[in-house]
Amino acid sequence: MTPLLDVRDLKIEFKTDTGTFMAVDGVSFTVNRGATLGIVGESGCGKSVTSLGIMGLIPTPPGRYVGGEVLFEGRDLLSMSNSERRALRGGRMGMVFQEPMTSLNPVYTVGAQIIECLRAHGMTNRREARERAIELLDLVRLPSPSKRVDDFPHQLSGGQRQRVMIALALANNPDLLIADEPTTALDVTIQAQILDLMRDLSDRTGAAIMLITHDLGVVAETCDDVVVMYAGKVVERAPARDLFNGPMHPYTLGLMAAVPRLDTNSDRLETIPGSVPPPWAMPAGCRFASRCPLATEECRASQPPLREIGKDWLVACWRAPIEEISV
């Protein structure tokens, strides 16, 4: 079965004052129908550029697609015309961004914005579109939707605005929902509501979700599969349960150990020494080598490819499985 979304060796670079650098450097993964894929990593790892790149929303210049393919049901989004891509976005591909305030237009009511999206994708009857808008607001559990449909974004709270964004993304029954840090700006109780809602909707409509986040807790609770990115590359890709039970890559191990836990108490947090190399000084070998206690000459000299290490489990590390190393 062809996956819904198949990203192959995606490369995106940016031109800046300090030079040209590759923000996304050969990223590959697939999203299956009805599944939820999480993309995690710390700031600057390229996760957001990946999601914008898939939607064809990279501003060029300064950005440039250097190579790769983004196959949506087998058709390459990157070689499509702009109008073909526009027909998919907001239609079969819905998007939710982190900032619910800046991604809604402040001078139109939320209803008008949902109706515009519905009409742009083929629903011509205005009255029908309004009814559908109210139905969508009800679906995302906005209280008294038939009244709130005429509210402006500033009249809603942050959580309510994010629910409107989700309603907007779901307006045309998308097959794929791309959510870039959808709950990062929200309080935890509201975050729990939004995540429940997204899970529930994907169960009900069968939409696949690609969730970009820095929060490992959110990933564990929401995703079936996980892609871990570091400095523009995928370092590990695995089913969520396997990844959280015992990550293979030293970076994933370090990241998980650094998360303070609510369920256990430790005296000291684990840290990953050092910091991510700056984009203009990427090493020739493994990008994590300078921070990795297991790094060898080989790690510093050449980049490890992503290779299979278990069922549906890929890791880019010369030394994995590391439990077989004797120190």
Partner: peptide
């Protein structure tokens, strides 16, 4: 409610309770 809503990095451990 706050403690229950906080996400935990353990798959399948979602506390079965309605967020407020």
């Amino acid at each position: 409610a706050l403690i229950q809503a906080a996400p935990r990095p353990v798959p399948g451990l979602r506390v079965a309770s309605e967020p407020p």
